[in-house]
Design a protein around this nucleic acid. Structure first.
Length: 259
DNA sequence: AAGATTCTCAACCGCGGCACA
DNA sequence: GTGTGCCGCGGTTGAGAATCT
Protein backbone atom coordinates (compact mmCIF):
# COMPACT_ATOMS: atom_id res chain seq x y z
CA UNK A 1 0.00 0.00 0.00
CA UNK A 2 1.46 3.30 -1.11
CA UNK A 3 0.11 6.52 0.19
CA UNK A 4 0.17 9.81 -1.52
CA UNK A 5 2.86 11.95 0.02
CA UNK A 6 1.55 14.50 2.48
CA UNK A 7 4.54 16.40 3.76
CA UNK A 8 7.43 14.60 2.21
CA UNK A 9 7.57 16.94 -0.73
CA UNK A 10 8.24 19.73 1.71
CA UNK A 11 11.12 17.78 3.17
CA UNK A 12 9.11 17.19 6.30
CA UNK A 13 9.42 14.13 8.43
CA UNK A 14 6.61 11.66 9.02
CA UNK A 15 6.14 8.49 10.99
CA UNK A 16 6.81 7.85 14.65
CA UNK A 17 7.89 10.75 16.79
CA UNK A 18 11.27 10.77 18.50
CA UNK A 19 11.48 11.75 22.18
CA UNK A 20 13.47 14.84 21.19
CA UNK A 21 10.70 15.94 18.86
CA UNK A 22 8.14 15.41 21.59
CA UNK A 23 10.18 17.54 23.95
CA UNK A 24 10.51 20.34 21.42
CA UNK A 25 6.77 20.32 20.82
CA UNK A 26 5.94 20.26 24.52
CA UNK A 27 8.36 23.05 25.29
CA UNK A 28 7.05 25.20 22.49
CA UNK A 29 3.40 24.78 23.37
CA UNK A 30 4.05 25.37 27.04
CA UNK A 31 5.72 28.64 26.15
CA UNK A 32 3.62 29.87 23.28
CA UNK A 33 0.49 27.78 23.07
CA UNK A 34 -0.70 26.45 19.77
CA UNK A 35 -2.56 29.24 18.09
CA UNK A 36 -1.67 28.28 14.57
CA UNK A 37 -0.81 24.67 13.97
CA UNK A 38 0.39 25.30 10.47
CA UNK A 39 2.93 27.83 11.58
CA UNK A 40 3.90 26.02 14.74
CA UNK A 41 6.40 23.47 13.43
CA UNK A 42 8.44 26.10 11.65
CA UNK A 43 8.45 28.38 14.67
CA UNK A 44 9.28 25.51 16.99
CA UNK A 45 11.99 24.17 14.71
CA UNK A 46 10.30 20.89 13.94
CA UNK A 47 10.49 19.18 10.57
CA UNK A 48 6.87 18.16 10.75
CA UNK A 49 3.68 19.44 9.24
CA UNK A 50 1.21 21.23 11.45
CA UNK A 51 -1.25 18.45 11.17
CA UNK A 52 1.22 15.94 12.49
CA UNK A 53 2.07 18.24 15.40
CA UNK A 54 -1.57 18.75 16.27
CA UNK A 55 -2.23 15.04 16.19
CA UNK A 56 0.79 14.25 18.33
CA UNK A 57 -0.21 16.86 20.85
CA UNK A 58 -3.90 16.09 21.07
CA UNK A 59 -3.53 12.33 21.07
CA UNK A 60 -0.40 11.81 23.07
CA UNK A 61 1.42 14.74 24.62
CA UNK A 62 -1.37 16.78 26.13
CA UNK A 63 -0.85 16.89 29.90
CA UNK A 64 -4.45 16.05 30.71
CA UNK A 65 -4.42 12.78 28.85
CA UNK A 66 -5.17 9.77 30.98
CA UNK A 67 -2.80 6.95 30.12
CA UNK A 68 -3.36 3.30 30.71
CA UNK A 69 -6.12 0.81 30.14
CA UNK A 70 -9.72 1.75 30.01
CA UNK A 71 -11.71 0.90 33.09
CA UNK A 72 -14.82 -1.19 32.84
CA UNK A 73 -16.86 1.91 33.59
CA UNK A 74 -15.23 3.79 30.75
CA UNK A 75 -15.85 0.93 28.39
CA UNK A 76 -19.47 0.75 29.39
CA UNK A 77 -19.81 4.46 28.90
CA UNK A 78 -18.35 4.19 25.42
CA UNK A 79 -20.71 1.39 24.54
CA UNK A 80 -23.72 3.33 25.72
CA UNK A 81 -22.65 6.51 24.02
CA UNK A 82 -21.88 4.67 20.83
CA UNK A 83 -25.40 3.30 20.85
CA UNK A 84 -26.66 6.85 20.91
CA UNK A 85 -24.10 8.76 18.91
CA UNK A 86 -22.70 6.25 16.50
CA UNK A 87 -19.14 6.74 15.30
CA UNK A 88 -18.92 10.27 16.56
CA UNK A 89 -15.73 9.61 18.42
CA UNK A 90 -14.98 13.18 19.30
CA UNK A 91 -18.42 13.58 20.83
CA UNK A 92 -17.87 10.43 22.82
CA UNK A 93 -14.40 11.58 23.85
CA UNK A 94 -15.85 14.84 25.08
CA UNK A 95 -17.71 12.89 27.70
CA UNK A 96 -14.69 10.91 28.82
CA UNK A 97 -12.20 13.27 30.40
CA UNK A 98 -8.61 12.45 29.56
CA UNK A 99 -9.44 10.16 26.69
CA UNK A 100 -8.95 11.04 23.05
CA UNK A 101 -11.18 10.29 20.13
CA UNK A 102 -8.39 8.27 18.57
CA UNK A 103 -7.98 6.18 21.68
CA UNK A 104 -11.70 5.59 21.95
CA UNK A 105 -11.91 4.66 18.32
CA UNK A 106 -9.12 2.16 18.80
CA UNK A 107 -10.59 0.59 21.89
CA UNK A 108 -13.92 0.31 20.15
CA UNK A 109 -12.51 -1.52 17.18
CA UNK A 110 -10.18 -3.73 19.18
CA UNK A 111 -12.21 -4.59 22.28
CA UNK A 112 -15.71 -3.32 22.54
CA UNK A 113 -17.11 -4.54 19.26
CA UNK A 114 -16.04 -8.03 20.24
CA UNK A 115 -17.45 -7.60 23.70
CA UNK A 116 -20.79 -6.55 22.32
CA UNK A 117 -20.77 -9.42 19.92
CA UNK A 118 -20.19 -11.83 22.77
CA UNK A 119 -22.84 -10.20 24.89
CA UNK A 120 -25.52 -9.99 22.31
CA UNK A 121 -24.66 -12.67 19.86
CA UNK A 122 -24.34 -11.98 16.19
CA UNK A 123 -27.98 -11.09 15.81
CA UNK A 124 -29.82 -9.14 18.45
CA UNK A 125 -33.14 -10.41 17.24
CA UNK A 126 -31.96 -13.91 17.67
CA UNK A 127 -30.13 -13.39 20.88
CA UNK A 128 -28.91 -16.33 22.88
CA UNK A 129 -28.18 -15.67 26.52
CA UNK A 130 -24.58 -16.21 27.51
CA UNK A 131 -25.55 -17.13 31.02
CA UNK A 132 -29.00 -18.64 31.27
CA UNK A 133 -29.27 -17.78 34.94
CA UNK A 134 -28.82 -14.14 34.07
CA UNK A 135 -31.54 -14.33 31.52
CA UNK A 136 -33.93 -15.70 34.05
CA UNK A 137 -32.97 -12.79 36.24
CA UNK A 138 -33.58 -10.41 33.36
CA UNK A 139 -37.03 -11.77 32.81
CA UNK A 140 -37.96 -11.30 36.42
CA UNK A 141 -36.51 -7.92 37.08
CA UNK A 142 -38.01 -4.57 36.21
CA UNK A 143 -36.34 -1.76 34.38
CA UNK A 144 -35.98 1.36 36.44
CA UNK A 145 -35.13 4.78 35.12
CA UNK A 146 -33.39 7.22 37.41
CA UNK A 147 -32.92 10.93 37.48
CA UNK A 148 -29.45 12.16 36.60
CA UNK A 149 -29.49 14.43 39.61
CA UNK A 150 -28.49 11.68 41.91
CA UNK A 151 -27.75 8.46 40.17
CA UNK A 152 -27.69 5.38 42.30
CA UNK A 153 -24.33 4.83 43.90
CA UNK A 154 -24.74 1.33 45.15
CA UNK A 155 -26.65 -1.80 44.49
CA UNK A 156 -28.95 -0.97 47.35
CA UNK A 157 -29.90 2.23 45.54
CA UNK A 158 -30.73 0.29 42.45
CA UNK A 159 -33.66 -1.39 43.96
CA UNK A 160 -36.78 -2.19 42.11
CA UNK A 161 -38.73 0.92 41.74
CA UNK A 162 -42.09 0.26 43.26
CA UNK A 163 -40.75 0.80 46.72
CA UNK A 164 -38.26 3.41 45.81
CA UNK A 165 -39.04 6.55 47.70
CA UNK A 166 -35.90 8.34 46.65
CA UNK A 167 -36.99 11.82 45.66
CA UNK A 168 -34.43 11.87 42.89
CA UNK A 169 -36.14 9.04 41.15
CA UNK A 170 -38.60 10.86 39.03
CA UNK A 171 -40.19 7.89 37.50
CA UNK A 172 -41.28 4.99 39.49
CA UNK A 173 -42.78 3.16 36.64
CA UNK A 174 -41.76 -0.42 36.82
CA UNK A 175 -41.47 -2.29 33.62
CA UNK A 176 -40.60 -5.82 33.01
CA UNK A 177 -38.34 -6.41 30.11
CA UNK A 178 -41.22 -7.86 28.25
CA UNK A 179 -43.17 -4.67 28.47
CA UNK A 180 -40.99 -1.64 28.09
CA UNK A 181 -43.24 -0.16 25.51
CA UNK A 182 -45.66 0.95 28.18
CA UNK A 183 -44.48 4.01 30.03
CA UNK A 184 -46.41 5.83 32.67
CA UNK A 185 -48.19 8.88 31.29
CA UNK A 186 -46.53 11.11 33.82
CA UNK A 187 -43.17 9.90 32.84
CA UNK A 188 -42.27 12.38 30.17
CA UNK A 189 -43.64 15.34 32.07
CA UNK A 190 -41.42 14.30 34.92
CA UNK A 191 -38.60 14.03 32.46
CA UNK A 192 -39.26 17.54 31.29
CA UNK A 193 -39.25 18.85 34.82
CA UNK A 194 -35.82 17.36 35.25
CA UNK A 195 -34.49 18.83 32.07
CA UNK A 196 -33.06 21.84 33.79
CA UNK A 197 -30.89 19.64 35.89
CA UNK A 198 -27.39 21.01 36.14
CA UNK A 199 -26.04 17.60 35.27
CA UNK A 200 -25.79 17.12 31.59
CA UNK A 201 -27.08 13.79 30.50
CA UNK A 202 -24.40 11.30 29.87
CA UNK A 203 -27.03 8.87 28.86
CA UNK A 204 -30.28 9.71 27.37
CA UNK A 205 -33.16 7.45 26.98
CA UNK A 206 -33.57 7.21 23.30
CA UNK A 207 -37.25 7.43 23.62
CA UNK A 208 -39.96 8.86 21.48
CA UNK A 209 -43.43 8.00 20.41
CA UNK A 210 -41.78 5.72 17.95
CA UNK A 211 -40.24 3.72 20.71
CA UNK A 212 -43.02 4.11 23.19
CA UNK A 213 -46.17 4.43 21.16
CA UNK A 214 -48.35 5.18 24.13
CA UNK A 215 -46.24 8.11 25.27
CA UNK A 216 -45.86 11.61 23.93
CA UNK A 217 -42.60 12.30 22.06
CA UNK A 218 -40.06 13.56 24.52
CA UNK A 219 -37.81 16.47 23.66
CA UNK A 220 -34.40 15.06 24.51
CA UNK A 221 -35.01 13.75 27.97
CA UNK A 222 -31.99 13.91 30.21
CA UNK A 223 -31.62 10.70 32.04
CA UNK A 224 -29.25 8.26 33.47
CA UNK A 225 -30.40 4.79 32.82
CA UNK A 226 -29.94 1.61 34.71
CA UNK A 227 -32.02 -1.40 35.08
CA UNK A 228 -33.34 -2.90 38.19
CA UNK A 229 -30.59 -5.28 39.07
CA UNK A 230 -27.40 -3.47 38.25
CA UNK A 231 -24.86 -3.48 41.02
CA UNK A 232 -23.98 0.08 40.21
CA UNK A 233 -24.68 2.69 37.60
CA UNK A 234 -22.18 1.40 35.14
CA UNK A 235 -22.69 -2.25 35.67
CA UNK A 236 -22.10 -3.66 32.24
CA UNK A 237 -24.73 -6.32 32.28
CA UNK A 238 -27.27 -3.98 33.69
CA UNK A 239 -26.69 -1.27 31.14
CA UNK A 240 -26.23 -3.63 28.28
CA UNK A 241 -29.47 -5.36 29.00
CA UNK A 242 -31.27 -2.11 29.31
CA UNK A 243 -29.98 -0.75 26.08
CA UNK A 244 -30.55 -4.04 24.43
CA UNK A 245 -34.19 -3.75 25.21
CA UNK A 246 -34.51 -0.25 23.90
CA UNK A 247 -32.57 -0.69 20.77
CA UNK A 248 -33.73 -4.08 19.85
CA UNK A 249 -37.25 -2.83 19.83
CA UNK A 250 -36.14 0.15 17.82
CA UNK A 251 -34.43 -1.98 15.24
CA UNK A 252 -37.17 -1.69 12.71
CA UNK A 253 -37.22 2.06 12.85
CA UNK A 254 -35.69 3.91 9.91
CA UNK A 255 -33.30 5.89 12.05
CA UNK A 256 -32.53 6.92 15.58
CA UNK A 257 -33.46 10.39 16.71
CA UNK A 258 -30.80 13.08 16.47
CA UNK A 259 -29.34 14.50 19.64
C1' DA B 1 12.46 -22.58 18.57
C1' DA B 2 10.66 -20.53 14.68
C1' DG B 3 7.51 -19.07 11.45
C1' DA B 4 2.68 -17.61 10.84
C1' DT B 5 -1.07 -15.19 12.33
C1' DT B 6 -3.52 -11.89 14.99
C1' DC B 7 -3.78 -7.85 17.76
C1' DT B 8 -2.76 -3.16 19.16
C1' DC B 9 -2.42 1.57 18.63
C1' DA B 10 0.12 5.66 16.92
C1' DA B 11 -0.02 8.03 12.92
C1' DC B 12 -1.58 9.17 8.40
C1' DC B 13 -4.95 10.65 4.72
C1' DG B 14 -8.83 12.82 2.75
C1' DC B 15 -12.80 15.26 3.36
C1' DG B 16 -16.05 18.60 5.18
C1' DG B 17 -16.94 22.68 7.78
C1' DC B 18 -15.85 27.17 9.08
C1' DA B 19 -13.89 31.80 8.85
C1' DC B 20 -12.34 35.33 6.27
C1' DA B 21 -11.05 38.18 2.31
C1' DG C 1 -21.22 34.03 -4.29
C1' DT C 2 -16.46 32.32 -4.64
C1' DG C 3 -11.79 31.11 -3.42
C1' DT C 4 -8.44 30.09 0.01
C1' DG C 5 -6.51 28.51 4.24
C1' DC C 6 -6.93 26.17 8.41
C1' DC C 7 -8.78 22.93 11.65
C1' DG C 8 -10.97 18.82 13.28
C1' DC C 9 -13.06 14.49 12.39
C1' DG C 10 -13.52 9.70 10.99
C1' DG C 11 -11.65 5.94 8.36
C1' DT C 12 -7.67 3.46 7.52
C1' DT C 13 -2.96 1.79 7.62
C1' DG C 14 1.09 -0.66 8.99
C1' DA C 15 5.01 -1.56 12.24
C1' DG C 16 5.85 -3.85 16.23
C1' DA C 17 4.19 -6.84 19.91
C1' DA C 18 1.80 -10.76 21.37
C1' DT C 19 -0.05 -15.10 20.63
C1' DC C 20 -0.69 -19.31 18.22
C1' DT C 21 0.68 -23.48 15.67
Amino acid sequence: MVRAPCCEKMGLKKGPWAPEEDQILINYIQLHGHGNWRALPKQAGLLRCGKSCRLRWTNYLRPDIKRGNFTREEEDTIINLHEMLGNRWSAIAARLPGRTDNEIKNVWHTHLKKRLKHSHGSNANNRQPIDPSKDIKREQQPVTIYSPVSPPQSSSDVSTSENNSNSNTFTTKTETNEDVSEIDENFWSEVLSAENSSMAADFRVVGSDQYFPSSPPPPLPALETVNGYGSNLYDTDANMDFWYILFTRAADLPELPEF
